[in-house]
Amino acid sequence: MEAHKQSQQSGELSFARADKSTLVVRLVGDWHLRHGLPSAALVEKQLDAAPKPTRLTFDAADLRDWDSGLLTFLIGISELCHKRKLPADWSPLPEGVRSLIQLAEAVPEKTGARAEVSHSTFIEELGHEAISYAQGLDDFLRFFGEVTIAFAKLPFGKARFRRVDLMIIIQDCGANAFGIVTLVTFLVGVILAFEGAVQLQQFGATIFVADLVGIAMSRDMGAMMAAIIMAGRTGAAFAAQLGSMKVTQEIDALTTMGISPLEFLVLPRVLALFLMIPLLCVYSDCLGVAGGALVSATMLHIPLGTYLRETRAAVTLTDIFGGVFKAAVYGIIIAVAGCLRGFQCGDSSSAVGDAATEAVVTGVVYVIVACGIFAFIFNVIGI
């Protein structure tokens, strides 16, 4: 069987031979025009393949939602069959589809009625991208709601997952991530201090480098850098793990056994990242301050004790706990994005890599959006 997949959210098209003379066109999934659909040229290629079929039929057992895009595709197949005088069996299709196809074939097309195909304009492309992002946000929010329902079962002990899996994921999200978090956040502190020192030296206010680094790291940069690191490291890993399980049909096996994949696979991952990112955020804050202290001691000749006292005077508990709260939210966003892309993974090995890439992009974009929202809200309430 040869399969053709347009995208993770659009319909799938595959072919089979019931016998040497009958070509079976199998329609799977949601066939929506806004997602992009396979071309009838794929069917034409199969009709020309040896041995050439003398009859065409359909398999629509796994066809779900559809719109006019499916009708356009089927009418294109109908035209191919008419040109080749090839009989087509439309009976396996849904009744509504058959009725519309019969109506389209009963009324002949007027000469010149079909518009010439033109290239998409910038506005059209922009509209398609906006619809795609809106659909992606809708999928994210739906999946987030399902995860929230699974979380509601956790306090009552009704969520089914293995505690050992949670411990393994916590180790991977926490202790195993210390190395990369140490390197990146320390360098961020060094960069912030260096850039601040260059400007503050002009006013003789170099001591305020401690304020700059301490406040920036505790309020935003510590949580943000930890989240971006975990999106690229752990979010992609979640998508790849769940994508591989989907390709090997392990997720379908869990469903068959009556075990919720959301509870068994997603819940421990979200919980682990929710618990570990706040700790990594505090660790990032300390490393950023240490990086600033290094620059202050070597470039500005500020004693370590003076630097730490100035940092302690500038940074408040509100700044620290605000950053920790942001980090916890970022952790949920990254975990949900990674698991969602894993569940949306296609059925091929290459789709696993695509899912991991999309998980990183989705996680980072949503984290930055959340950071902007937090900045606005915290400013309004005066934090």
Rank of each mutant, 00 (worst) to 15 (best):
V365E: 12
S284F: 04
M245Q: 10
A40K: 08
V329A: 07
M1L: 10
E250K: 12
G322I: 02
A290C: 10
L304P: 00
G36I: 03
L279E: 08
D67N: 05
F374C: 09
E146G: 01
G222T: 04
R163Q: 14
F343G: 04
A290I: 10
D220Q: 12
F264Q: 02
C81N: 09
I332L: 07
H35K: 01
D285V: 11
G76Q: 05
R34E: 13
T182H: 08
M245G: 06
G291S: 12
L100T: 05
A335D: 08
A115Y: 14
G36C: 06
F186L: 11
E116G: 09
S132Y: 13
D220K: 12
V164Y: 06
F186Y: 11
V367K: 02
A41M: 06
S296N: 13
M299A: 05
G174P: 01
A327E: 05
T148G: 09
G232L: 03
S218E: 00
M276Y: 01
A113G: 06
D285T: 09
R34G: 11
L262M: 06
V336E: 00
I334F: 15
F73K: 04
L33G: 00
I191C: 05
A197G: 05
Q201V: 07
Y330I: 03
A293Q: 03
F156P: 09
R162M: 07
G292L: 08
L103F: 15
D65E: 08
L141G: 10
V247K: 03
D19I: 11
Q8E: 08
G338R: 03
P155C: 08
L317M: 13
P261W: 03
G157V: 11
E124W: 14
Q171D: 06
A134K: 08
V147W: 04
E358Y: 07
T306C: 07
Y366K: 02
Q171E: 14
R233C: 11
G235P: 01
V184Y: 13
K158E: 02
F178L: 11
A297R: 14
Q249A: 04
V25I: 12
G69T: 03
L74V: 05
Q102D: 05
G214Y: 00
L265D: 09
G243H: 10
F161Y: 13
V360A: 01
Q249D: 10
F203K: 12
A236N: 08
S99A: 15
I131K: 02
L103P: 05
R312S: 06
F178D: 10
H119R: 12
L141F: 06
M225L: 12
F151E: 01
I215F: 13
W31T: 00
E263L: 03
T316D: 00
A193M: 09
P268G: 02
R269H: 06
F58R: 03
A104W: 01
R55I: 14
L71M: 10
H119Q: 10
L279T: 08
L37V: 13
F144M: 07
F321G: 03
M224W: 14
F143T: 00
D319E: 09
H35Q: 14
S10W: 15
D354M: 07
I373A: 12
L13R: 05
E95A: 13
